[in-house]
Design a protein around this nucleic acid. Structure first.
Length: 592
RNA sequence: GCCAGCGUAGCUCAGUGGUAGAGCAGCUGUUUCGUAAACAGCUGGUCGCGAGUUCGACUCUCGCCGCUGGCUCCA
């Protein structure tokens, strides 16, 4: 339908909103790229080429591998096509004709057959014809600003068992200024990459020789983590969670009971043998919490019970997917398992969703996506229980009037879930908080409570994290603030900078006072120039620099400089303490 | 795991078929200074690992490991 508007001209076009127009232009750019590839690689087989956020891609099957060096030639050819302003024409032809037309194009043939329609839509521009629903721009000259950005492998139809194609990514905008702005933004984003900042700010490291995907938290990164964890613990106690600790390994038998050995084995490490019994390192904490729950007969009066644990788990991740702290092989989940009655499920889910929102807000994340993930292909349990759990999750989202998207088939094997996705500096999304209903584990472990009627009933379980994992959350947090952590999270909150060696004694007194008050302060007592100390403190993104010289020693003051360069001038030390303590207490999030 | 690219000093990077350089960092000395880098000297690398080609490999070839961008998969 939309394609008709385009063909009919400008009146309807004006009604189309800007983003649709951009999307159409990007989609058209992918066709033009395909045409360029066709002229440079006549033997190319074409797969698909949609518009995506900021741009487009097209997947090709070529006789040789593309490298980044091939892009300029393709771009140049595209520019010729655009300069020629060749029209896009639309046609509806019979599937039979289409099969003939795309005879040498196996991927197109597959698409036509899968469509199973009598008529298919095709678009033609210059020397390139594509099977396509459209709509498209009127002529290639409408592409104003584009750039090819990268080449990558991509499986045909996203299936790793099918051929790997070569994908070329590009970006396209309505005008050159927008493209320039985009490229600028990407360059800026690269500067806040947590992997880069992790090194620069001495937050963490990973070691090839010790094993990929295993994280070493340096003192400063560890400090931030401790603050997050302390905050997390307090907020959980307040909400009726009990904090627990569990071991790191368990007998394979336990994982057989839980079903992980069947459904999750690909992500689990090989067993180790202890006294002739096989043990594996835990990929999840749930079975452990269940064992604790089951140590007593539980009454309906005691439910819900909420076991929370900062539980470190190890999962095998294929080598190609590891990514700094955002995707690792050993990580600590801010996990909890809620054991409740079916009638409590919805209220519990609601509390968890609200807690997750509170956490996001506390750490300054304003933008995140809520996803409702439904039943996957591989699953345990009955359809009825899946429907019931899914409905409970949906109800909570609706009642809280939260905007969410449905991710069909993305649930875990034991139940549906609500996920919160956080964005990194480059706009890639990472799954953070997750709330998963589980009717299966209680069955497998025979988890019960004694009801009002004196009989045993099946307990319902909720798995949930409200940050995700410490590693991934810390990665996103670092990128969100470009390493300039808010005052309450900053590993070093203030640094004392004596101007000359004779000021060190005074500075040391202030240091002791601040440390006594739990302010994370440091003293830079090196015999270096003040300018150097300021520069280094600035590069380390330390929120407050306290410069002390003759004047300050004499008056009992500090000269306060903030990391954004702002000079607050001379403050009485007590005045400064008052200021910083109140900002820390309020968990101020200002980005300085 | 798959496709492509990359791997040189602690960091950021230059370099060549004839056995390696810069800046910063580090160390030593001098300097004691008012809001983003004082000055001088010194140290530092089996050029990711292992084979192969070659008179000779950091450079060319192959394999492996790791990293980067994607794909698949997931907190």
């Amino acid at each position: 339908m939309r394609s008709l508007f385009v063909l009919e001209g400008s009146i309807e076009m004006a009604a189309e909103d800007k983003s649709q127009k951009l999307e159409m232009m990007r989609h058209s750019a992918s066709h033009i790229m395909a045409e360029a590839v066709k002229s440079l690689f006549p033997e190319a087989k074409f797969a698909i080429g949609p518009a995506i956020e900021d741009g487009f891609y097209y997947d090709f099957d070529l006789t040789r591998s593309l490298a980044a060096e091939d892009l300029p030639a393709i771009e140049a050819r595209m520019k010729e096509i655009i300069a020629a302003n060749t029209p896009f024409t639309h046609e509806e032809i019979s599937a039979k004709e289409a099969l003939k037309l795309f005879a040498g194009q196996p991927y197109k043939v597959e698409l036509i057959n899968d469509l199973a329609e009598d008529k298919v839509s095709i678009y033609k521009q210059g020397g390139f014809t594509d099977l396509c629903r459209g709509p498209h721009i009127k002529a290639s000259g409408e592409i104003k600003a584009f750039k090819l950005t990268s080449v990558a492998g991509a499986y045909w139809r996203g299936d790793e068992k099918r051929p790997m194609l070569q994908r070329i990514y590009g970006v396209a905008f309505a005008k050159q200024a927008d493209l320039d702005e985009y490229l600028q933004r990407i360059a800026e984003a690269a500067k806040r990459d947590h992997r880069k900042l992790g090194k620069e700010l001495d937050l963490f490291s990973l070691h090839e020789e010790a094993g990929p995907g295993l994280v070493y938290w340096h003192p400063r990164g560890a400090m931030v983590r401790q603050i997050i964890e302390d905050f997390w613990k307090v907020e959980h106690r307040r909400r009726g969670y009990d904090i627990v600790y569990s071991p790191h390994i368990a007998k394979v038998h336990l994982w057989e009971t839980s079903g992980h050995w069947n459904f999750y084995r690909d992500n689990m490490y090989s067993p180790m043998v202890i006294d002739e019994i096989q043990y594996v390192i835990k990929p999840m904490n749930c079975p452990f919490h269940i064992l604790m729950y089951k140590t007593q007969l539980r009454s309906y009066r005691n439910l819900p019970m909420r076991y929370a644990e900062l539980g470190t788990v190890y999962r095998y991740e294929r080598s190609g997917v590891l990514h700094g702290l955002a995707r690792v092989r050993g990580f600590t989940q801010d996990d909890a398992h809620i054991f409740c009655r079916p009638d409590q499920l919805e209220a519990e889910v609601k509390d968890v969703v609200e807690l997750a929102q509170f956490m996001m807000k506390s750490f300054g994340f304003e933008e995140y996506e809520m996803m409702l993930s439904t039943r996957p292909e591989k699953y345990t349990g009955t359809l009825e229980s899946w429907d019931m759990a899914t409905a409970a999750l949906r109800n909570v989202l609706e009642k809280l009037q939260i905007k969410y998207q449905v991710d069909p088939g993305e649930g875990v094997f034991y139940g549906p879930k609500i996920d919160i996705k956080l964005k990194d500096a480059l706009g890639r999304t990472w799954q953070g908080p997750t709330i998963q209903v589980d009717f299966q584990l209680p069955e497998r472990f025979d988890v019960n409570y004694v009801g009002e009627d004196g009989h045993e009933h099946r307990t319902v379980m909720i798995h949930r994290t409200v940050l995700g994992s410490m590693e991934r959350f810390f990665a996103c947090l670092t990128e969100h603030y470009a390493g300039a952590f808010p005052l309450w999270l900053a590993p070093v909150q203030t640094v004392l900078i004596p101007i000359a060696d004779r000021h060190v004694d005074y500075a040391a007194k202030l240091l002791a006072e601040m440390r006594a008050r739990d302010i994370r302060a440091q003293l830079d007592e090196r015999s270096e120039r003040m300018n150097l100390k300021i520069r280094e403190a600035q590069l380390n993104k330390i929120p407050y620099m306290l410069i002390v010289g003759d004047k300050e020693v004499e008056n009992g003051t500090v000269s306060v400089r903030m990391r954004n360069g702002e000079d607050l001038g001379s403050l009485s030390f007590s005045g400064f303490l008052e200021r910083i303590e109140s900002l820390i207490k309020s968990r101020e999030l200002a980005k300085l």
